[in-house]
């Protein structure tokens, strides 16, 4: 890979890194939001088969190499006193019926729709162990196991699942995750439901701020590098030509 292409690749990945940081900061107030982490691919990936007998073999592709993974750690629980706010404490996702099948979310600011169905703020039905949950009023009681009571009558238990390999959960927006075909989903065991609480985003603004400074400065340094290389070419063309 030539020098200019390498610098460009570095600057491109800075732009993508800033993209990830800005997404995290924009969602500081989004319930149940999980922050994204920018991952830069190892230098070895640039090379054909790594280091071999003929030395380093660069592929020559000047493409940005930032990918993202989701930080699945729990966000702080916030007391809201609203009986329809439910937070999952521990590992697990609530299951909702999305148009394409099941989706998973930790965004527990729930609502009741006109037919008495328990739905997410986006209007998708929240699933219990026996399907959609129907209530007669807007103040159900939900215990730690996720049992939903309508008055004193047990209606259903909220389904809470987890993915043994969290990387198979793909974000689809609106706080929802979809499961990639290859991944398996199992019933969660290690969790507690908290009624009247919401889970805040797990974004730490100071951390993102520092990453942002780092990114902007790296971008600046790359620019200086490009200018330095430009100077070098300039000298090569003009000074060598005088000889």
């Amino acid at each position: 890979m030539d020098t200019i292409a390498m610098i460009e690749s570095g600057m491109q990945s800075d732009v993508q890194r800033l993209h990830v940081i800005s997404q995290n900061l924009a969602n500081l107030s989004t319930t149940g939001f999980k922050r994204e982490v920018a991952v830069t691919r190892a230098f070895n990936d640039y090379l054909h088969g790594g280091v071999n007998g003929t030395g380093l073999q660069a592929t020559g592709y000047a493409q940005p190499v930032v990918t993202t993974t989701t930080d699945q750690s729990a966000g702080p629980l916030k007391y809201s006193s609203n009986p329809l706010d439910v937070a999952v404490e521990g590992d697990g996702y609530m299951v909702v019926a999305a148009p394409w099948g099941e989706a998973y979310t930790r965004q527990g600011s729930l609502q009741i729709d006109a037919t008495g169905r328990l739905v997410t703020s986006g209007g998708l039905a929240v699933l219990g162990t026996s399907g959609e949950i129907h209530l007669s009023g807007s103040t159900p009681r939900i215990d730690q196991e996720g049992n939903v009571y309508d008055g004193t009558q047990l209606v259903d238990r909220l389904r809470v699942v987890q993915a043994p390999d969290p990387s198979t959960l793909v974000r689809v927006g609106s706080g929802l995750f979809a499961n990639e075909a290859s991944g398996s989903i199992v019933e969660a065991t290690n969790y507690r439901m908290r009624q009247g609480y919401t889970e805040a985003a797990n974004v730490v603004s100071m951390h993102e701020m520092i990453k942002m400074i780092e990114t902007v400065r790296h971008f600046e340094a790359s620019q200086k590098l490009a200018r330095g290389y430009d100077d070098m070419l300039d000298r090569a063309i003009n000074l060598l030509g005088e000889l």
Partner: peptide
Amino acid sequence: DFEDLLYRAVPSGRDSSGQFAATGRMGMGT
């Protein structure tokens, strides 16, 4: 209530066969 906006796959580089690998997913705000 806020929600995160649609994620779209971005070409995050080329794999060993030189194909674009759309593994990076980036959100579009809130």
